[in-house]
């Protein structure tokens, strides 16, 4: 056991969430250190997206705590719009604002919420757009962009707020296979630069490449937390094994002559 003095940036303690009488999250605890990349895996309906949404205050919790920099943000009096400046979130449906140009999409938060200097914010936005290779689309409208481009803009929009941690909710699930790569590349670069990230994804190879820790969830509970190497080679739980096998067709073969 390595004695780690680094403090946790984001902590989830014994989270419990019900919805319509059903338990969606049960006794969920998680700890994310600064610079760590956590990938949450699990079958559909296991609660991984819900967990992410709870962290960002988009879903209410019945009991448990969420701590950001040791500060409890799960109280009923939390001013979420302030907290969300520190937590960036990118959605599966990208949800760029269709009635604004790309640059306006990106600058809405910095200008209206953080009240930053217009010049400074614009330079920051342009720098980020350069990095993801979309500077030429700066004055375009979202509907003129492809899915992969929109998702990269969504990431830039979140980054421009200078968050301390980024949440990614199945961001490549709605994309054509060819453009998935360009988005994952951006995420990988972010990880290499030291951004703290919590990622929910179905892309197994990507999870293997980017994660510091794999969190495996099933039916609202965390079943395993392991390093990617450990988890993908030999999951320690039965459900974990079943899950890995779902992506493996080696034991299923069409009978051929």
């Amino acid at each position: 056991m390595v004695h780690n003095t680094q403090e946790a940036l984001l902590e989830v303690k014994k989270l419990h969430k019900d919805y319509d009488g059903l338990t969606v999250l049960s006794d969920v605890s998680l700890s994310v250190k600064k610079g760590e990349v956590i990938v949450i895996l699990g079958p559909s309906g296991c609660g991984k997206s819900t967990l992410l949404r709870c962290i960002n205050g988009l879903e209410a919790i019945q009991s448990g705590k969420i701590l950001l920099n040791k500060v409890d943000i799960s109280g009923s009096d939390t001013q979420w719009h302030l907290i969300r400046q520190k937590i960036g979130m990118v959605f599966q449906s990208y949800d760029l604002f269709p009635h604004m140009t790309i640059i306006d999409n990106i600058l809405l938060g910095p200008l209206k919420v953080q009240k930053r200097n217009k010049q400074e914010a614009r330079e920051h936005a342009e720098k980020l757009l350069h990095r993801v290779g979309l500077i030429d689309k700066i004055n375009a409208y979202p509907r003129q962009l492809s899915g992969g481009q929109k998702q990269r803009v969504a990431i830039v929009r979140a980054l421009c707020m200078n968050p301390e941690v980024m949440l990614f909710d199945e961001v490549t699930a709605a994309l054509d296979p060819e453009v998935v790569h360009e988005v994952l590349k951006v995420m990988l670069e972010l990880a290499n630069e030291g951004m703290t990230m919590v990622i929910v994804t179905h892309e197994m190879d990507f999870a293997k490449a980017v994660a510091d820790k794999i969190v495996f969830m099933d039916q609202g509970e965390i079943k395993e937390i392991a390093s990617p190497v450990d988890f993908f080679q030999e999951p320690s739980t039965e459900r974990g094994k079943q899950f890995i096998n779902m992506f493996n067709y080696n034991h299923l073969n069409k009978e051929r002559e």
Binding site: N56, G57, L58, W80, H81, L82, R84, Q85, I87, G88, M89, F91, S93, D95, L96, F97, L108, G109, K112, V113, Q114, A154, R157, A158, M161
Partner: peptide, 22 residues
């Protein structure tokens, strides 16, 4: 759509700012 509202909130806008701008 609700997701538009959530995207606005996630960027740190208050509910009234979301109503006004989004």
């Amino acid at each position: 759509s609700r997701t538009q509202v959530e995207a606005g909130l996630s960027v740190g806008l208050t509910q009234s700012q979301v109503t006004r701008y989004v």
